[in-house]
Amino acid sequence: MLDNVASLGRNVLASVAGAGQAMMMLLRALIGKPQLRKSWPLLMQQMYSVGVLSLVIIVVSGLFIGMVLGLQGYTILVDFGAEQSLGPMVALSLLRELGPVVTALLFAGRAGSALTAEIGLMKATEQLSSLEMMAVDPLRRVIAPRFWAGFYSMPLLALIFSAVGIYGGYLVGVRWLGVDDGAFWSVMQANVEWGQDILNGFIKSLVFAFVVTWIALHKGYHCVPTSVGISRATTSTVVTASLAVLGLDFVLTALMFG
């Protein structure tokens, strides 16, 4: 009985300590004199590996999710003679929910796991320690550019996802199933608002970008430096980031659209 209470306390203490560690890592990586000349090439390199290389999976899944939305929405809406509402249905569900959330989940799987594994291996092979030996702060040199790259890339990816998804819905709804072209766009325009829908979706993707990148970096930087530790950290990145995204999405949706 007492052992159980003790293990509960140990777990709580460990998770609080983990949160504190993650916070300290982020603060020490980001706060400081900006050195644009040094950090710009590093940021470009990371933007490439985190953002550009994720583009293919984002575009393909966006297109298919938009097409599925178009197909499913059409079969339901046509029963009520309301197939003109297909446009707003596809656009609103992509802009408000699916765009930011699915992008964040894919991003956690595609880029977050890679970040964790890379940094974990750097730690295991003592590259981070060698950087410190050479008086280079690994937080500034390794963590900060990766964080900013994730933070800038993911909202862009979410925007691309939504745009491609809407086009996919257009392809299926208008080109294949024969919803009226003009009605599709005009009803969509009558129902989608800049501030309410596009901006709120963008804010969501900013929050998710922050959380997913932060979790990935923290798990890598504080992993157990063995092969088992790295594999656990990578798994834990994907699981924790996905859960955090889904939980936060509910909170954000309740705040924005509640």
Partner: peptide
């Protein structure tokens, strides 16, 4: 740098598409 530049342009184009085509 070219690839990243195109990536950013892509993102801005997507925002323009959403703003001009999808929203009123």
């Amino acid at each position: 740098q070219l690839a990243v530049g195109f990536f950013v342009i892509f993102g801005i184009l997507a925002l323009l598409f959403l703003g001009l085509r999808a929203a009123n």
